[in-house]
Design a protein around this nucleic acid. Structure first.
Length: 474
RNA sequence: GGAGGAGUGGCCGAGUGGUUUAAGGCGGCGGACUUGAAAUCCGUUGAUCUCGCAAGGGUUCCAGGGGUUCGAAUCCCUUCUCCUCCGCCA
């Protein structure tokens, strides 16, 4: 269909019929080694650092295969000698001679195994730091200034008064309690109350209902704490540890001597647990595509962002989000990415919110994405569009790291699938957009019609007012 | 938290130091028989890395890691997971 014609735009590694080796990789090692210049050129579109991340790869790969070839030859020799030993008379001189010889081979094998481990670890570390290659038709550019507007929905609401921002509106309505959020937890934590809390819940249910009933996604309720391996699978670790909240492991209170580290992390997005549902699995081809939607709280430490968006709900350490995640065959992935983006947009359309769709340029995309659309909603209080969803096509980048594969037919080789995800949507920011776009001259806020079924207790005016905001909903 | 038990291929399950390159069964796939199906019979059956233009070789994998040994699914240490019982808890 439409997508098939454009698959040829992608770099040659996408057919991904290769395996992934005993180490984790994000880019296929063989592809990188055999097409080093091509890979470097593709990564250079992200910036110099991305291209440079490839530098150590070729030499390490050569060292690795050298060690492996020697090691395998030694093992073969050992296996043959062993078989002979099994048959030999254990009292004979021949047996003793063979035992000496085998001892030497074994020692050499151990030496090489040590070497293999070292090289493998170095190579893995190097590969984990390499970002994904942008799809060929992603626009060039260095920063968000170079992103391309793809389309726009609705119009900026016009006000006969000066619109307020969501902070002024929410505080006046009594639905945001920033001070008590600080008291309980600190900066960037907020308490919602009354109609504010109800609106948050209404949005969550509205979004889940839309995606499960009309868009065909299965609802998932995952853990909010995950292990390190899960975060590696989706690419948050090892590079972005600073953005995560890490929970002290229980062994820390009662350490066991040889226990492996069991750190847990609060999920920064449902993408992590949902994508990792199928980590280390080989799925039947006829089960694809798999479409999941999930509501979770999300936790971000936002290290290094101090001073940015300190006011209001825009940037919180804890926020709610409904996520969309898809597992796709490579040949359907590009079209699926477009469709998922439309599914996220549908939430904004039903809420009748003005927004635009931006295609990110090569320099502005997240490390795992090959293509990415951001949905930006209009915030009259800021007189600006702000990101409310980010819809990414990861090609096989996450699938390789998390070892998620599928088998087209029984008997065929497993191959890596493609993952796609996007917010559908960030609930706090949706709430912000509703307050700002639906505000009235008197500071009350009209509730979008799509949410009426979820907002018990509203009168015919469908307004959230200071008077009604904290009353019971009956 | 306490006391026991157990982790083997898609599933069940045998295997306590060297013809195990993991028996046998189920399931799957292919074939024979059949008008078709069932039943029966025969064959086949995973992942991984690597050498090779290819045909085809070889390596690794018995929950994970480490150790003993010429040699480990098998012995030792350790971690994880699951099950049973007791206690506690929403």
């Amino acid at each position: 269909m439409a997508c098939a014609a454009r698959v040829s735009d992608m770099p040659a590694c996408w057919p991904n019929t290769r395996g992934f080796g005993s180490n984790r990789r994000m880019l296929d090692l063989r592809y990188v080694v055999e097409h080093l210049d091509e890979a470097r050129a593709a990564l250079a579109r992200r910036g110099e650092a991305a291209a440079k991340s490839l530098d150590p790869i070729a030499a390490l790969a050569a060292r690795r295969s050298q060690v492996i070839v020697r090691l395998q030859a030694l093992r073969e020799e050992k296996n043959e000698a062993n078989a002979a030993m099994a048959k030999a008379d254990k009292q004979s001189d021949e047996f003793k001679t063979r035992r000496e010889a085998l001892k030497r081979i074994s020692d050499e094998i151990k030496t090489h195994e040590g070497e293999e481990r070292v090289v493998q670890a170095e190579l893995e570390a190097a590969l984990l730091g390499v970002p994904n290659m942008p799809a060929a038709n992603v626009p060039d550019g260095k920063s968000s200034d170079d992103n391309k507007e793809v389309r726009r929905h609705g119009e900026k609401p016009s006000f006969a008064f000066t619109p307020k921002d969501h902070v002024d509106l929410g505080v006046a309505l009594g639905i945001f309690d920033f001070d008590r959020g600080v008291k309980l937890s600190g900066a960037r934590f907020t308490v919602l109350r009354g109609r504010g809390a109800q609106l948050e819940r209404a949005l969550m249910m509205f979004m889940l209902d839309l995606h499960t009933r009309e868009h065909g996604y299965e609802e998932i309720w995952p853990p909010a704490l995950v292990n390190e391996e899960s975060l590696r699978g989706t690419g948050q670790l090892p590079k972005f540890a600073a953005d995560l909240f890490k929970i002290a492991s229980w062994e820390e209170a009662d350490p066991k001597p040889d226990a492996p580290k069991r750190d847990l992390y609060l999920i920064p997005t449902a993408e992590v647990p949902i994508t990792n549902l199928h980590r280390d699995e080989i799925l039947d081809g006829d089960k694809l595509p798999i479409k999941y939607t999930s509501y979770t709280p999300c936790f971000r430490s936002e290290a290094g962002s101090y001073g940015k968006d300190t006011r209001g709900l825009i940037r919180q350490h804890q926020f709610d989000k409904v996520e969309l995640v898809r597992f796709e065959k490579p040949e359907h992935a590009e079209a699926a990415h477009e469709e998922l983006t439309r599914h996220a947009e549908e939430v904004l359309k039903r809420l009748d919110l003005h927004y635009r769709v931006m295609e990110l340029c090569a320099g502005d995309m997240g490390a795992g994405a090959a293509r990415c659309y951001d949905l930006e909603v209009w915030l009259p209080g800021q007189n600006a569009f702000r990101e409310i969803s980010s819809c990414s096509w990861f090609t096989d980048y996450q699938a390789r790291r998390a070892r998620i594969r599928y088998r087209e037919k029984a008997g065929e080789k497993p191959q890596l699938l493609h993952t796609i995800n996007g917010s559908g949507l960030a609930i706090g920011r949706t709430l912000v957009a509703i307050l700002e776009q639906y505000q009235q001259a008197d500071g009350s806020v009209r509730v979008p019609q799509a949410l009426w079924p979820y907002m018990q207790g509203l009168d015919e005016s469908h307004l959230i007012t200071r008077y009604s905001s904290s009353r019971t909903y009956t």
